[in-house]
Write a protein that binds this DNA or RNA. Sequence first.
DNA 1: TCCTAAGATCGCGTTACCTCA
DNA 2: TTTGAGGTAACGCGATCTTAG
Length: 276
Amino acid sequence: MVFDINICNTRLSLGLGSTFTTRNNDQNHLPQFDHHEEFKNKSSPKIDHFSLTLGLPSELETISVDAGAKGDQSCNIHGQQASSVSAVSSFSNSSVKREREASVEEVEEERVSPKICEDQDEEGPRKKLRLTKEQSLILEDSFKEHSTLNPKQKQALANRLNLRPRQVEVWFQNRRARTKLKQTEVDCELLKKCCETLKEENRRLNKELQELKAMKLAAPPPLYMQIPAATLSMCPSCERISSGGHVGEKSSKISFSIGAKPRYYSPFANHPSAAC
DNA sequence: TCCTAAGATCGCGTTACCTCA
DNA sequence: TTTGAGGTAACGCGATCTTAG
């Protein structure tokens, strides 16, 4: 649901739900074979320049996983063999889906480059990988081009950045959330300003109204007010005040052309002139 | 043709880790 | 050295859509 508000010449779009992407995004409607293609093309995560600290649950000691220098695909795990780390997978056994995804990726990892530390995301408490500036820059550039990724784009980006597709996906999700949050803040500020403007306008109009009331009491009524009120009416469409009368009696009509739309609520508006 | 389960992806809210003042 | 705040990667969940059976 989206409300379009045009206040103070701003075109604000406030809504519930997504604001910049929708389910109709074409990349979400790729044929199924594209996903299969993605899986076929999945390559291993080549995390080669990060140093991770894995805190394993319960009695297992905290281990440090060092993926080594770029180009060195060996995995040094202090205190544990990589295989035993794998055995402690599923630190969060509630995520069946995650395991499913991981299993697919692992299969591909084994197929493409089995020497990678394949289980860096599978065990121990949640660990946080800080993206490098270069990676962030590339991701930002990609986000500027398209705020969502299709599977192929995701895979390509993951390969380019030596990240897992899931990490790229998560980054884009978080990035969209940040964008939306910032936009909401901007809209909020804009609405605050509009609110202030409207308050000021309201004050000004009230003051003007008081002045008009004072003038009305002090001065004799204008010509049109000397006509019995019952005979006056204003057509809301043509904004003319007429003296009433029967339809077609144009000769007896007194008309006042009003250049601009009335800024006030007009009681006449409820009684449009039959002459119009 | 309709139904249903599975899979993929999303938004949203939350958690947890990391950095820095 | 400790600590609290802020940023953000990662997670969980429900909704939606597509596809295959």
